[in-house]
């Protein structure tokens, strides 16, 4: 089964005359983590939103290999099909966990919701899965009935990850998953993500402005500036031997500790 999972070609998104992202093409393979880096306004979040169908592209296409092996253009799917894909085979981890969680229902329900969406109706099984997943993201099982509003930022982020992974998606989108967290909390989350991605063979697209996060998590890296991809390659290569002037500036601006 040596075939890509996602095929993005010539994708552009403009907001009126302003460019969001322009003419972006890439493939993503099963188990591969792609980091998209750049400053605010570089178009990396726009790209993530267009690829994940949260925004409609102005031009270009995104094809996805479904579980049955068939390729589908995701912008030609019905709204219902797209929503089903988002709930089952895809995940989306927002920078702000409040956007990805339901803050007024219990942690257990947050995790169980996606299982119910795919037709699981057995309360005992759903609860058992929820406890299992809370454990995998290092949340104690006795917090299952608490609402996420009672959780710290790091716990909320881990809960959001559990909520996304419970249906065993094959592709996950992450928008600054460690942004806004304390450094020690970031490290724990990164380590957790790294382990889960490897264990589950997940493909992921991670948007981050933090090159250290990209180094730790990703295999491949795309550098964006003014909506365009200006450099693309093996993560080690882009960071150790940056070619584009802007990438050299980014890499040389990292603070060493």
């Amino acid at each position: 089964m040596d075939e890509p999972l996602l095929h993005v070609s010539n994708l552009s998104k403009s907001y009126g005359s302003r460019i969001g992202c322009e003419d972006v093409s890439f493939e993503l393979w099963p188990g591969e983590v792609l980091a998209v880096v750049g400053e605010s306004g570089s178009g990396k979040t726009t790209l993530l939103n267009v690829v994940s169908t949260r925004l409609e592209p102005t031009a270009g296409s995104v094809s996805y290999r479904m579980r049955d092996g068939g390729w589908r253009d995701i912008n030609r799917m019905s709204e219902a099909e797209r929503r089903f894909l988002m709930r089952t085979d895809w995940g989306f981890v927002h920078q702000n966990p409040a956007e990805g969680l339901r803050m007024s229902v219990s942690a257990g329900a947050n995790v169980g919701e996606r299982l119910m969406a795919i037709g699981d109706r057995h309360y005992g099984n759903i609860r058992a899965s929820a406890i299992d997943w809370l454990g995998r993201v290092e949340i104690a099982g006795d917090r299952i009935d608490d609402q996420p509003r009672a959780f710290s930022g790091g716990m909320r982020q881990r809960l959001q990850i559990a909520r996304n992974l419970v249906t065993r998606p094959r592709l996950i989108f992450m928008d600054e998953p460690t942004g806004g967290l304390d450094v020690s909390v970031q490290a724990r989350l990164l380590d957790l993500l790294r382990g889960l991605v490897a264990d589950m063979g997940l493909a992921a697209i991670v948007v981050t402005h933090d090159l250290a996060v990209a180094r730790l998590l990703s295999h491949r890296m795309m550098v964006m500036k003014d909506g365009r991809v200006i450099e693309h390659g093996l993560t080690d290569r882009v960071l150790d031997d940056p070619r584009a002037p802007y990438t050299q500036l980014l890499v040389s601006s990292i603070l060493q500790v």
């Binding site: 591969e32 724990r188 380590d191 180094r215 295999h219 491949r220 390659g233 093996l234």
Partner: peptide, 25 residues
């Protein structure tokens, strides 16, 4: 990049001078 990663996994190893530390592992 995919080919390089496959070669690194199965064929080509590297012992660098410094360890790139992963937090918590």
């Amino acid at each position: 990049p995919r080919q390089i990663l496959a070669v690194r996994r199965d064929t080509l190893g590297y012992v660098s001078q410094f360890l790139r530390v992963v937090p918590r592992v």
